[in-house]
Design a protein around this nucleic acid. Sequence first.
DNA 1: ACCTGAACACCGTTCAAGT
DNA 2: ACCTGAACACCGTTCAAGT
Lengths: 195, 195
Amino acid sequence: MPKPMRADARRNYERLLKEAALAFTEHGVDASLDDIAKRAGVGSGTLYRHFPTRQDLLGEVYADRIDELADQAVEFGASGRPPGQALADWLQKLAEQLIRLRGLRALLGAAMADGSTPVISGCSGRLTDAAGELLTAARQAGAARADLETAEMLRLTHAVAMAAELGADGPPDVRRCLVLMIEGICGDDRRAMSL
Amino acid sequence: MPKPMRADARRNYERLLKEAALAFTEHGVDASLDDIAKRAGVGSGTLYRHFPTRQDLLGEVYADRIDELADQAVEFGASGRPPGQALADWLQKLAEQLIRLRGLRALLGAAMADGSTPVISGCSGRLTDAAGELLTAARQAGAARADLETAEMLRLTHAVAMAAELGADGPPDVRRCLVLMIEGICGDDRRAMSL
DNA sequence: ACCTGAACACCGTTCAAGT
DNA sequence: ACCTGAACACCGTTCAAGT
């Protein structure tokens, strides 16, 4: 139970979040923190008081997006869709967001990289759980390869979202990327290439 | 035909390359340029004279690695292996290097991202060509999906190499990652999931 | 309790002065 | 022709002083 903030503190907190969101989409994840503080009309110390690290700031900025994605996973799972379809649909939502929001991508990338920082693993925990249930259901329906783990699937999606952005030709084609990824995820027994 | 450098210039050039390679593997792609200059025993201006941008420096540091990979692609293509196998084997070599050498990964990532800078597209041009021939042969043998483009394949490999490093559990498993990618690349007609 | 902004450390880049 | 290193701009982070 977070004790209520003083009025001015809360106002600064919200201004910072708003300006940070703007800065991250405009200038990328490495946007100047000093700039964010200036635009929010507060001293730089205030920013650090509220958000000790850049990751903390990222986490708060995108907390809602992450929650929405987790909600959607639960919703898709209960929608009556075939489990494989539910997973595919959700992965598409995830990939779309990862491509659109660079900050979210950096945040989840860090979350999957170490998973140590409590802030980060905390905010991505629900997401991982929800994704895991979608995957389990798909596996049981024979729609996903049996040896695929949740973390692995999320890492791969993350990677594909990055690859999509590397493509110079116009806005990245989410579907195309997912086709490539999913047809791998499905698994097959044609092995014209082997390792 | 690059006109020969003055003796001291050449010595500094080589010292810089050596220290840069060290710094990139030790501290990542964002290693301090000033530090590199200091360790090489030259002024920072000298570094900028030889390598106007960080990309230029990266390009020179990893030029040999890129050439080796291109050579290997040609060699595998002429080795008598089934075309699908030749492609798979080469992709494994590529992925291994991308995972091992962070600097090379950053460089090729940039090369595939815009492909504009002459230095970058220059050094990666041979690589792309060689990879393209391997892919074409594999396609004609029915070992690779018909709609897959070379740039797309390389971007995907790059992405998969990044995903591999996100895994916290020990050294990244190249083979595992490639299995996931290749079984997607091969294409199949089982579509338990669809988009 | 919270905020401000000066101060410090660090890095990239340029350029006048030196050889 | 090439090198040096001081100078400048910029950023992150801390902390003493203020309310």
